[in-house]
Nucleic acid binder design. Structure first.
Lengths: 255, 255
DNA sequence: GAATCTCTTCCATTTTCCGGAAGGCGGGCT
DNA sequence: AGCCCGCCTTCCGGAAAATGGAAGAGATTC
């Protein structure tokens, strides 16, 4: 595990190395120079250069006239084939839109990836509370409405890992006590919906419910994000649960 | 260039090889077995197995309990960072929605990738003509409204390559004569909009216009797809041109 | 119960990868 | 001018990783 400084150790499989270069890109930095990528990935410049050329040949990255690297269109295209990404999004969208039309609030759709939530879709209600999330963005499992649902139905190992590690705090009301979180997760399983009250921002409250696949496994979650105090969580719970059921049915349905 | 049969030749850079495995996935076949992928990519089974494990470790592919491989969520996430994919989509969406609301017809947004069009967004007008396109899908440059616009403003080499190669035919009215196509492209550059009249399906007609970046380069195209005969192409041309200009301005604007 | 799928692991051979070093280019500072 | 410092690109001998046939374990089908 020695990787301090420069004393060049073995580097492992190339494929993984090349893919790790891509991790240098983020929503905040979607355009990087060669040296940026090399530094961020901690890979020698010459090597980075060679690997990026291979990624470029396939279309994983593109390079502008300015010399900056960006994520390539081919990679985006392939991404549209991800069942848990675009696939889920397309099937759920009509229902999310209904929810959005009826409530005029923010609607979110997310899945769990390891110990994080990944947002698949987000519909911003015009005039609704501003939210921090971005489609394709990650977030801690413990804070959001969707996150709590996904955590409540995650395998025990995942729950333990999340609850034993340090828990991110966003506001003064973010719950970071593992014991209290376990109780909340139990509530989610009992009531069928989660409540995140001002845990992410002090003006917002979100209520989430689980989406199941054909086999009854929890594969995603929907939530409504409203201004704190503007509606009863219980009423919202009924709404999202209904919507979640419809989406589950749609997923089980055709093919 | 000998790759007939099996006489195992040198295989080249691994990274490219691994990425080429991913090309086995398509909208029609988003879930594949190991052997499927090996066959489609023409890579020995043992090698495919090893490479897929590396792709899986990073999240490029996932494997269900059923043993089938799918495109992974991590790859989808990265895809959302592609400036010409999600980036363009997000900035253009409000304008596309306006166009959709006003006309109640299909609206499409696409970019060029090599000698193909790739559809970035598609809004289906309720009750509008059905269209064949899929977000993330590819199409020939010569047939669609968006394609004609992108081809008209593509580098000469690309135009020559497309026009000298075989031109795909979809209907009896698809234009496949290079000379006539060149004339159409010139018209597009003069008038500022393209017309594809029943070239893809016999009941539809699409009208496209170019979207420019800050430097005046054509980077994308919008189109309206309507039932043939339902509206004057010229009137539609004005609409899409207006919309295209707004989008161009939005792209040039913030950051 | 045999034939035919699927996938997984092994390991000797051979190919590719590695990355320091050197050189080019542009920009900023004195 | 001259200098430095940042970027990028190419080269190439030593070293390490990729390769894929073969063998074997399950699962289905006939």
């Amino acid at each position: 595990m020695t990787r301090r400084g420069h004393p060049t150790g073995p580097s492992g499989p190339v494929v993984g190395r090349a893919l790790r270069l891509l991790d240098a890109f983020s929503a905040e930095r979607p355009e990087l120079t060669l040296s940026d990528i090399a530094r961020r990935a901690d890979v020698p410049l010459a090597t980075t250069h060679r690997l990026l050329n291979e990624l470029r040949a396939w279309g994983a990255v593109e390079r502008g006239e300015d010399g900056l690297y960006r994520i390539g269109l081919r990679l985006w295209e392939l991404g549209t084939l991800a069942p848990r990404g675009q696939g889920l999004r397309e099937r759920a969208l009509p229902f999310l839109e209904d929810l959005s039309q009826i409530t005029r609030e923010n609607v979110q759709l997310a899945v769990r990836e390891g110990t994080k939530v990944v947002f698949i879709e987000r519909i911003a209600g015009s005039g609704a509370v501003p939210v921090l999330t971005r489609v394709g963005g990650r977030f801690a499992l413990t804070a959001t409405g969707v996150g709590l649902v996904l955590l409540a139905h995650a395998p025990t190992e995942v729950q333990d890992e999340v609850l034993s590690g340090p828990i991110e705090r966003y506001t003064s009301r973010t719950v970071t006590d593992p014991v209290r979180l376990r109780r909340m997760l139990a509530d989610v399983r009992t009531s069928g919906y989660s409540i995140s009250d001002r845990q992410v921002t002090l003006d917002a409250c979100s209520v989430g419910a689980a989406i199941h696949d054909r086999r009854g496994q929890v594969v995603a979650a929907v939530s409504l994000v409203v201004r704190h105090g503007s509606a009863s969580p219980h009423a919202l719970g009924l709404l999202v649960r209904t919507s979640a059921r419809s989406i589950s049915r749609a997923l089980a349905g055709p093919v």
